[in-house]
């Protein structure tokens, strides 16, 4: 655990307990997930009970307590995406990456999650890889889209 980088985050937020969400967002940004050791460290530095931090960390979908891949893959299963075949897309991605929802590939590059709506229904089916949105996704486009990221490594 890199305590110095956490200290930098804490300093940015003035060691305020009330800024815990911001602190967790920055940590998530940096580590791709919220490592337990880091949360324990934050709890100690802020004199904030660890359970209270967990309460927040488990509440929001944006936070993950498990390592995420370098490129988290989020498949939207909202109504609009669903009727346009999101389920097929998801199946295809599972097959291509060889993992189930909630898992991470062996090389730690991709992790797979689903969301219930991303608010960009016009683009459906939508798949978000890393920070990039891929609209009008079809099962045929899955392989080439994902492999693009592998190439960029």
């Amino acid at each position: 655990m890199d305590t110095r980088s956490i200290d930098r985050i804490l300093k940015k937020y003035n060691h305020e307990q009330s800024s815990i969400i911001g602190i967790l967002q920055d940590l998530q940004e940096k580590e791709n997930y919220l490592p337990e050791k880091s949360l324990e460290y934050i709890s100690e530095r802020l004199s904030m009970p660890l359970t209270r931090i967990y309460r927040i960390a488990t509440f929001y979908n944006a936070f993950s307590l498990k390592p995420r891949g370098k490129y988290p893959v989020n498949v939207c299963l909202g109504t609009a995406c669903h009727v346009r075949g999101a389920a097929m897309v998801l199946e295809r991605i599972k097959m291509h990456l060889g993992i189930e929802v909630g898992e991470i590939t062996k090389d730690n590059v991709f992790s797979l999650e689903t969301v219930n709506c991303l608010g960009s229904c016009a683009l459906g089916p939508v798949v978000v890889i890393g920070n990039e949105y891929h609209g009008k996704m079809t099962s045929a486009k899955v392989s080439s889209t994902i492999d693009q990221y592998r190439k960029d490594l």
């Binding site: 009970p49 967990y54 509440f59």
Partner: peptide
């Protein structure tokens, strides 16, 4: 401060550390 609410909606659960 050993337990708290965790998760949300139908997944809600009383959780301890981690």
């Amino acid at each position: 401060n050993a337990i708290s609410h965790g998760y949300r909606g139908s997944q809600s659960k009383i959780v301890a550390k981690g």
